[in-house]
Amino acid sequence: MTYIGMQLQLIGEANPLMSSIWELSPYLFLCCKIALSIFLFILAANFKTKHVKTWRMILAIPLLLYVSIFAVHLTWITYAL
């Protein structure tokens, strides 16, 4: 949703690092977003330690942030169109 919103110039990227990547290439930006999301999901699903529940909860926080940002961007784009 971030990629679509930015392509349509409806939203901006608040993260300075991702904003810099966007300026280099929108496709690189999209690949980074997808790769980070997949990495986080794989890490959370396959994390092996004796404190699995604690780490899964810690890793759930960024995952919930991603989902929340996705929902906000979807809402903004829906209302803008």
Score class of each variant (00 low, 15 high):
L24V: 15
T78K: 01
L28M: 13
M18E: 05
G12R: 07
R56C: 07
F29W: 04
S68R: 04
L81V: 10
R56K: 14
I77A: 06
R56M: 06
E23V: 14
K48N: 13
S37V: 14
A60F: 03
I34C: 12
L17C: 11
S19W: 10
N46R: 12
S25T: 03
N15W: 10
L59A: 01
V67M: 05
A35D: 07
F39S: 13
I61K: 02
E13K: 04
A45R: 12
W76Y: 12
A14W: 08
T78E: 00
A44E: 07
L36I: 14
T54L: 15
L24H: 04
L40E: 13
P62R: 02
L24T: 14
H73Q: 05
Q9D: 05
L43V: 12
I34T: 11
W22G: 03
I69M: 09
L43I: 13
T78L: 11
I11C: 07
I77Y: 01
I77Q: 02
I21C: 05
R56Q: 11
I77D: 00
S37N: 13
L24A: 11
I61E: 01
M18Y: 07
V52R: 06
N46P: 09
P16A: 10
L43C: 10
S25R: 05
I34Q: 07
H73I: 11
F47L: 14
L63W: 01
F39K: 08
M18L: 15
L17K: 05
Q7L: 15
A45I: 11
A45M: 12
T54Q: 02
A35K: 02
W55Q: 01
L43G: 04
A80D: 01
C31P: 01
V67C: 03
N15K: 09
K48G: 04
M57R: 10
L74W: 07
K33A: 15
F70K: 00
S20R: 13
L10D: 03
S19G: 09
S19M: 10
V67P: 00
K33T: 14
T78P: 00
L74T: 01
F47G: 02
A71V: 07
L59H: 01
I4S: 02
T78Q: 01
V52S: 07
C31T: 12
L64C: 03
I34V: 14
H51G: 08
F47Y: 13
L8N: 02
E23S: 14
I58K: 03
V52N: 00
L8Q: 09
Q9F: 09
F41R: 09
S37L: 15
P62Y: 02
Y66W: 10
M1P: 04
